[in-house]
Amino acid sequence: MTSTLYRLFLRDCKHHLRKQSDILNPLCFFVIICSLFPLGLSADRELLNTIGGGVIWVSVLLSMMMGLNQIFRDDYEAGVLEQFLFTHTTLTQVALAKIAAFWCLSALPMIILAPVMGTAYHLNGDQILVLMMGLTLGTPTLALLGSIGAALTLNLKNGGVLLAILILPLFAPVLIFGAGMVSAVGMGLPVNAQLSLLGALMFGSLSLAPFATSFALKNSLDY
């Protein structure tokens, strides 16, 4: 069982690496959105420090959503997804492997880039640390919740915008706790509560989302 999951995970990672636009485009998108905000507002240090956490979080949200649209699509369009029904592998395992691979190659680079962006927004060391911790705990939830939306819109021709409508409202709690942490630390407040809440959200979605996703995947084969 585990080895199947691992093999699927490796296969998906390999595919992401072969189709590098999958990783690079959302990452560039992330950097570009982050860079546009100061242009639209002002370069005022204090302002940037205040909004920095929120802006970086929103950029992560949007770039992850872009990548999520693609997470099942290649295998679905090639007809690979339906073949899993004829094997010992369950669609839940497939979904988990894909979400994990997606997280490693899409969210992880953004977490690594976050300090760079944070510095550009004049966040202090504590804030950057908390930002990265928040992203580490929060992005799996985003990937898990997003995978449900991606599976639901899989057999729609223009699912991209619909995906945004479906999942962005669900991302709100993660955004609130994640960005809230950065501002709280800026004000010298403790962030234990937010960290635990982000962790709880992650485990909650980890235990429920894969089943919803696999059900939605099965449903998408009905055409």
Binding site: K14, H15, D75, A78, G79, V80, E82, F86, T87, H88
Partner: peptide
């Protein structure tokens, strides 16, 4: 049933990335 059958649809079921 699923472990005794194999299906070939319109889509060849080979990932273009492999």
């Amino acid at each position: 049933f699923y472990l005794n059958s194999a299906y070939l649809g319109h889509r060849d079921a080979h990932s273009p990335l492999q």
